[in-house]
Amino acid sequence: MLILKKKIISILENIFDPEIPINIYELGLIYDIRIINKNIIIIIMTLTTPHCPVAESFTKIITKKIFNISYVKKVDVIITFFPNWTYKFMSELARLELGVL
């Protein structure tokens, strides 16, 4: 399961927010990665704003890329706004890149 989680994180680290040049994992948009029976993946994520124009495309991109893992049979991406995203969710690297400390 740890190897699969690392693969998923690697995929998420290659998906970037179109308005902020940081990947969605380092940006802190991913709240949880759940793996069920090694082939069902549930991603719980948020957006920087509820009015994000790419909300639908994010879920499609994430689903499509995770389905590239050969034994994955189902991917659900759930968007939540609880808790609301803030800069505190960003990784230290992301904060340094944006100059937010």
Rank of each mutant, 00 (worst) to 15 (best):
N23F: 12
I15Y: 09
I9K: 12
I8S: 01
M45E: 03
P50R: 06
T63G: 09
C52L: 06
T48Q: 09
K64A: 12
I22P: 00
I8P: 03
L4E: 09
I43H: 05
L96S: 11
D76C: 11
Y31W: 05
S70V: 09
E26Y: 02
T59L: 05
T80S: 15
R95P: 02
I43C: 11
T49G: 04
E13Y: 02
A94Q: 07
K64Q: 13
D76E: 15
L47E: 03
K74E: 13
F16H: 11
I8T: 06
K73C: 02
N37Y: 02
K38A: 06
I40A: 05
L47R: 03
I30N: 01
N39R: 12
K6L: 13
K60M: 08
L12I: 12
L98T: 00
L2K: 15
I79F: 14
K5H: 02
E97Q: 15
E56P: 00
M45G: 03
A94R: 04
I43V: 13
I24A: 05
K7W: 08
S91C: 08
K5F: 03
L98R: 00
L27Q: 01
I15A: 09
I42H: 10
A55G: 13
K5R: 11
T49R: 07
L93Q: 11
K7T: 08
I36K: 14
P53M: 10
L29W: 04
I35S: 00
